[in-house]
Nucleic acid binder design. Structure first.
Length: 260
DNA sequence: ACGAGTACCTGGCAGC
DNA sequence: TGCTGCCAGGTACTCG
């Protein structure tokens, strides 16, 4: 599932490869996206020169010289590949000698449209304990739901939120406002650490096909995961449990021994 | 403003 | 073996 580290991995590959090239041959596949790319976005793409690829939270922005930028979101099954067609290709375009495909089996991905308002970037230097404290203060919602709310903090999904909470020793169901100063500081640092680790390892590929970079390479973060998708805690070896009630409709794996 | 719930979509898998 | 049905998850929406 593409979260911040996976999206950043994609960004780096595309930025290195496509910068300075002119986009042409934009083609929308059939069936297309659940939300069809706006015509204005397709028009901006066609004939535009790539100034670079940026990332904001889990969003990718393709900057085109003199034409603004086109927003991409991978949803949960989206992939951008260099030169690899497939049955779920929703959009394709050429850039120099390469053909780029946007694949999306489950059709949650998006191309075009505005970038929504997003919370701070957890890997920005300004993201510290006081920023997280302002996010959690007075909130009764589970801390994990708050970590995954993109309007509050940009980039964490179920995997990295679960891992950050485990590293910080905080249970996912705890009310956001119940964290002590020390726990909040620990959690802010944990968010940074798991995301930095994820980026440095090229993202997480939990099962064979779940995430591959644009050149088809898997990530290695799954080797370092402590709770997500595991039966036994990677720290103490005890059983990984889920919360009785789903948080934000999602599973919330945690270790009752390591997390309080 | 906040928290909870649900729709969207479909590959993959559990259960029969 | 083949069928059914449910789950996964990020975002956007509604409702109280």
């Amino acid at each position: 599932m593409p979260e911040l580290p996976e999206v950043e991995t994609v960004r780096r590959a595309l930025d290195a490869r496509l910068r300075g090239r002119v986009v042409c041959g934009v083609a929308v596949g059939r069936p297309t996206f659940y939300r069809r790319p706006p015509a204005v976005a397709l028009k901006a793409l066609e004939g535009g020169r790539v100034a670079g690829w940026r990332r904001r939270g889990k969003y990718l922005l393709l900057d085109l010289e003199g034409r603004g930028s086109v927003v991409f979101h991978l949803g949960m099954s989206g992939r951008l590949t260099i030169g690899k067609d497939g049955p779920h290709a929703r959009l394709s375009f050429r850039a120099g000698d390469d053909e780029i495909f946007f694949h999306d089996a489950r059709r949650f991905g998006r191309v075009g449209g505005p970038l929504p308002a997003l919370g701070p970037e957890p890997l920005d230097p300004g993201f510290d304990a006081s920023v997280l404290r302002a996010v959690l203060r007075g909130r009764s919602a589970p801390v994990k739901a708050l970590l995954m709310d993109q309007r509050l903090i940009a980039g964490l999904g179920n995997i990295y939120a679960s891992e950050a909470l485990h590293l910080a020793g905080v249970r996912p169901a705890r009310a956001g406002g119940s964290l002590t100063r020390a726990e909040t500081a620990s959690l802010a640092a944990a968010c940074r650490r798991v995301l930095e680790l994820g980026v440095s390892l090229g993202g997480s590929t939990l099962d064979d096909e779940s995430f591959l970079d644009p050149l088809g390479r898997p990530g290695r973060m799954q080797e370092r995961v402590k709770v997500y998708g595991r039966r036994a805690c990677g720290t103490c070896g005890g059983p990984v449990r889920d919360t009785r009630r789903p948080i934000g409709g999602r599973s919330s794996p945690h270790c009752p021994r390591c997390q309080s």
